[in-house]
Amino acid sequence: MDEATAATLRAECDSLCRMLISRTAPDAIQTLYARAHASGVLTAPSGRRDRALLAIAHRAPRLARACDGVAAVVGRRGAFRRKVVLLLALLESHPETVQHVRWAPSTTLSRLRRLMGAFT
């Protein structure tokens, strides 16, 4: 993988990671993300919509979530959505990040429990 592609993937991984778990991607996740691309698990975006979504998410990381929302409805199988799902799979499989994926903050859960208690 050339240096430019590697840098692009690093930026992409970081921006998507912030979008998913509000944290920068640890080095280990960056490495795995690049490895998945190199091994062909993920392919480059081919369609116009896919390329556009990725470009927007790159240029304006704050819009990454909106891009993913669009992809969830009209581009489920596209490369952009696949990248986000793969990153989530990596995050839930790695000891440094699993807790940010698997467990809801306990305050949220207890708030919800109290709310449910009010209705039951």
Binding site: A36, V41, R81, R82, L86, A89
Partner: peptide, 11 residues
């Protein structure tokens, strides 16, 4: 996810 990470269930 498997040694090649291809066990991720992608869309």
């Amino acid at each position: 996810l498997g040694p090649d990470l291809d066990g991720a269930l992608l869309p």
